[in-house]
Computed example of a mutant assay.
Amino acid sequence: MKLSQRVQTITPSYTIGISTKVKALKSEGKSIIDLSIGEPDFFTPEKAKLEGIDAIARNESKYDMVPGLMALRKAIVNKLKTENGVDYEVTDIVVSSGAKHAITNTLLAILDPGDEVIVPKPYWTSYPEMIKLCGGIPVLVDTKIENQFKLTLEELKNAVTPKTKMLLINNPSNPTGAVYTKSELEPLVNLCIEKDLFILADEIYERICYTDDFTSIASISPEAKAITVVINGLSKSVAMTGWRIGYTASSPEIAKAISTIQGHLVSHPSIVSQWAGAAALTDCLDDMTQMVSEYKLRRDLLVETLRKIDHVTFIQPDGAFYLFMDLSYYKDKFNAEDSLSLQICDDLLTQYDLAVVPGIAFGNDHCIRLSYATELSLVQEGLSRIKTYLSQL
């Protein structure tokens, strides 16, 4: 008996492989500095936790509406209007079990078998696999470090074919931390409008932004809003990773399709999590602001340190909580037939007890990614070990 063809096309997760190695080394008694995980080191704010506890006490444990609790969807509508300048109706919002689920719902609602989705490189590791699982074909487009790894109009034009159905943009970016400006987004959006392409705008990191001019794609114009599905959630902005609350904001037609799909596959996310999420959006703004301030402090200190390491190229992250380091200078030190980033990351883990993610997981084998969503002293020590390692190559 054979498994499905779709499973055979999926690439195993590099990050899971790293996590497995880290666990094995820790079981041997080694102390590993783990900078591979994209998870906030903060805890869920108290008001959100208390609302979750209260929801349990109120016996909020029955089925509810497939697209999400009315209280949470109203809070999302208000957030999108006040923070992002986009007006949606409550019926345009579908709450899902995390942003991954929101993306999958969207791909299932829009793609037919063989449809192409343009994905700029470097990309979050799961995008191509999610597209393939939903019957689409990921078209991975190279970007340049001199453009902060942001897609340009010319690069987009060259990637569009008669089979193109969608452009996927992650803003701010995982793994680079790059943030598109409005002037950079507008020509991309206008081409998508001209070519009748959907835009999947993954804005899960939009609150962790160190500039004052974050632009949500749907806010650019009514025409942009009509073709865009905004993906967001509470995992990164409110440190609610395990609560699994994400959402889409889209046109009524797309929202209805997403809700129908979700209704058949999973119904709705945990009711308790949704009540906690509503409290997070309405009562925990100060907590979110404090988290972002701490991330920015870490970013500033780490960038200063990174600039002192020879032969390392990087872009200053304007959002998210990652540093994406280009180590292509050292490629001649390794076997050209093997993966540069995998070799470096394996050396760092086995020789220096440091876990980071190889850039090959994001479509760029010259880079490694480390997360500063952890204690500052640990990240600084991690950079110190990288510097020591590179100096010995």
Rank of each mutant, 00 (worst) to 15 (best):
residue 218 A to G: 07
residue 218 A to S: 09
residue 218 A to E: 03
residue 219 S to M: 15
residue 219 S to V: 14
residue 219 S to I: 15
residue 220 I to M: 15
residue 220 I to N: 15
residue 221 S to Q: 14
residue 222 P to S: 04
residue 222 P to L: 02
residue 223 E to A: 14
residue 223 E to Y: 14
residue 223 E to D: 14
residue 223 E to W: 12
residue 224 A to G: 10
residue 224 A to M: 13
residue 229 V to E: 00
residue 230 V to D: 00
residue 230 V to W: 03
residue 231 I to V: 03
residue 232 N to V: 01
residue 234 L to Y: 05
residue 235 S to T: 07
residue 235 S to H: 12
residue 236 K to S: 05
residue 237 S to K: 07
residue 239 A to G: 08
residue 240 M to R: 01
residue 242 G to A: 06
residue 242 G to H: 06
residue 242 G to T: 06
residue 243 W to I: 12
residue 243 W to N: 14
residue 244 R to W: 10
residue 245 I to H: 06
residue 246 G to A: 03
residue 251 S to F: 05
residue 252 P to K: 02
residue 252 P to C: 03
residue 252 P to R: 01
residue 253 E to P: 04
residue 253 E to V: 05
residue 254 I to L: 06
residue 255 A to P: 00
residue 255 A to W: 02
residue 257 A to T: 11
residue 258 I to D: 01
residue 258 I to T: 05
residue 259 S to K: 12
residue 259 S to D: 08
residue 260 T to G: 11
residue 260 T to K: 15
residue 261 I to Y: 08
residue 261 I to A: 11
residue 261 I to W: 11
residue 263 G to I: 10
residue 265 L to S: 13
residue 265 L to A: 08
residue 267 S to Y: 15
residue 267 S to K: 15
residue 268 H to E: 09
residue 269 P to M: 11
residue 269 P to F: 12
residue 271 I to L: 07
residue 271 I to H: 10
residue 271 I to E: 05
residue 272 V to P: 12
residue 272 V to H: 11
residue 273 S to I: 04
residue 273 S to Y: 08
residue 274 Q to M: 05
residue 275 W to P: 05
residue 276 A to P: 06
residue 276 A to N: 06
residue 277 G to H: 05
residue 279 A to V: 01
residue 279 A to F: 06
residue 279 A to K: 05
residue 279 A to L: 01
residue 280 A to C: 02
residue 280 A to S: 04
residue 281 L to T: 02
residue 281 L to I: 05
residue 282 T to A: 14
residue 283 D to R: 06
residue 283 D to P: 00
residue 286 D to V: 03
residue 286 D to M: 01
residue 286 D to G: 04
residue 287 D to I: 00
residue 288 M to Y: 05
residue 288 M to R: 12
residue 291 M to R: 04
residue 292 V to F: 13
residue 292 V to Y: 14
residue 294 E to A: 09
residue 294 E to V: 10
residue 294 E to G: 07
residue 295 Y to H: 10
residue 296 K to C: 10
residue 298 R to W: 13
residue 299 R to G: 04
residue 301 L to K: 14
residue 302 L to G: 04
residue 302 L to A: 04
residue 303 V to D: 02
residue 303 V to A: 04
residue 303 V to N: 00
residue 304 E to D: 07
residue 305 T to S: 09
residue 305 T to M: 10
residue 305 T to Q: 09
residue 305 T to E: 09
residue 306 L to Y: 12
residue 307 R to D: 08
residue 307 R to W: 09
residue 308 K to I: 06
residue 309 I to L: 04
residue 309 I to Q: 04
residue 310 D to F: 05
residue 311 H to W: 07
residue 313 T to K: 15
residue 315 I to L: 09
residue 315 I to S: 11
residue 315 I to A: 08
residue 315 I to D: 06
residue 315 I to R: 09
residue 316 Q to V: 11
residue 316 Q to T: 10
residue 316 Q to N: 10
residue 318 D to Q: 13
residue 318 D to I: 00
residue 319 G to S: 01
residue 319 G to C: 00
residue 320 A to C: 02
residue 324 F to S: 15
residue 325 M to G: 09
residue 325 M to V: 12
residue 326 D to I: 11
residue 326 D to K: 10
residue 327 L to G: 08
residue 329 Y to R: 10
residue 330 Y to H: 11
residue 331 K to M: 07
residue 332 D to Q: 09
residue 333 K to W: 12
residue 333 K to Q: 13
residue 334 F to S: 12
residue 335 N to S: 15
residue 336 A to H: 11
residue 336 A to S: 15
